[in-house]
Design a protein around this nucleic acid. Structure first.
Lengths: 233, 233
DNA sequence: ATCGTCGAGTTTGTATACAATTATTCCGTT
DNA sequence: AACGGAATAATTGTATACAAACTCGACGAT
């Protein structure tokens, strides 16, 4: 019997949710998911429990039994979530600013590399929104992995993909937005390079706050844009 | 068959860990725990998975199989953990500072009530360290519950008890320390009352940073003070 | 004596059976 | 036709059985 199906189920389920192939609000039936994965209910249950604790899945009702649904998306939730991500990555950036000078310099160079790639990708026509998305992710991941401790990394790994649910749905791709983001990134990079933890932290928080605003504006203009066909069962 | 044993197992296990009756580093055997609780392995497993994700339990090794142990305590971990708690509660305090004036006033009054109770409890001889601990907890819980959104509350509920593992072990009770804490609390309260989110947030972060320092000093003088008899099985 | 290998015991991962509760359908009554 | 209620199905929670992998010790070969 293959081991670690629970982990596989966790990853697959999380991916299905983040990619919105399991759309917000969809009911999650253990038996159906188990059939889909070819597993038994046991590993699926374990995965669902964890996803519920992390916020991907919501336990509604509260009678004797629990009903699990894919956590719905809302502007208010996005604001709260982005603020939390900003605080977490802000701590990582603060830690990055206390690294030895040599490492800070190298980190700053790497980060600037991502930003240049971002500008280049945005200049493409048509722009590859998948690549842009990926570059944003890696920019933030770089300094978190470099400077954050184990707890902070675990927390980041838990929460960050939930923000990606939003970013994937409402592709905030117009070029001006990317330029604005890159400008904000530069403030983060400079603060880290200068060893100013407070500035780095608040620059990251501001970046996410602005991202939330851009997202809210995007939602207002194009509500509910499910791009992938949902799984109907 | 009684439902929701998994939740009961989660709570009991978390309590055993926080109270250090399951000491740091202790191996967690599903069968033993199941016997102890009178449950089967199934709900115990579910509880352990969640506790592992939250950080109470550490999955060591990483072979094909997983070994779970109670997460060890260390000064570095405490620093990181307290910093995270500070950031989370900092967001809550920031939100509290944006409440309508009337609510801010009432919240501030309640918080000052906790602080006065703290000073009174500290003046007692002998001081009731259990009550002091409880008052600290409730002080912070109050503004989180009042102002934080659902996500932030869930995150707080996940992480905060882990800080309490440390605070319970190294009772940071000397009176001067309490006075210092109360002084820091007053800065938090004033900032909330004044509607200054930035000040409130950084005051909370500073409070936890200082708490980490006090804790580190306490650990240095009285290392490894397990006050309760560990469970041997 | 040291190292490796084989094997019994332990522990975890998964599947499945069963129990209990909630949702749904279908029928009868008014 | 609408409503209520009983029967039925669906779904979750728990227990248990079994399989695979790891641990640790004993024994033997070099």
């Amino acid at each position: 019997m293959a081991r670690q199906r629970a982990t596989a189920a966790y990853r697959q389920l999380r991916q299905l949710i983040v990619s919105s192939r399991l759309p917000p609000g969809a009911r999650l039936i253990e038996t159906d998911l188990a059939r889909r994965f070819g597993f038994s209910r046991t590993p699926v249950r374990a995965a669902l429990r964890v996803l519920a604790r992390e916020g991907y899945v919501l336990a509604v009702d509260g009678g004797e039994r629990i009903r699990l649904v894919v956590a719905p998306l809302s502007v208010e939730d996005a604001r709260e979530l982005f603020q939390i991500v900003g605080a977490i990555e802000g701590l990582a950036a603060r830690a990055a600013a206390t690294l030895p000078l040599r490492k800070r310099r190298r980190l700053a160079a790497e980060l600037r590399g991502f930003d240049q790639a971002l500008l280049a990708a945005a200049a493409q026509n048509p722009s590859d929104s998948e690549e842009i998305f990926d570059l944003f992710t890696r920019f933030h991941l770089r300094y978190v992995e470099t400077a954050a401790g184990p707890r902070l990394r675990a927390l980041h790994d838990s929460i960050k993909p939930q923000a990606e649910r939003y970013r994937r749905l409402y592709s905030m791709a117009p070029e001006g937005r990317i330029a604005a983001s890159v400008a904000e990134h530069e403030m983060i990079i400079t603060a880290i390079e200068d060893g100013s933890g407070d500035d780095a932290s608040s620059a990251v928080a501001a970046n996410w706050q602005n991202a939330a605003e851009r997202l809210a504006a995007s939602i207002a203009t194009q509500p509910n844009p499910f791009s992938l066909p949902p799984i109907t069962t």
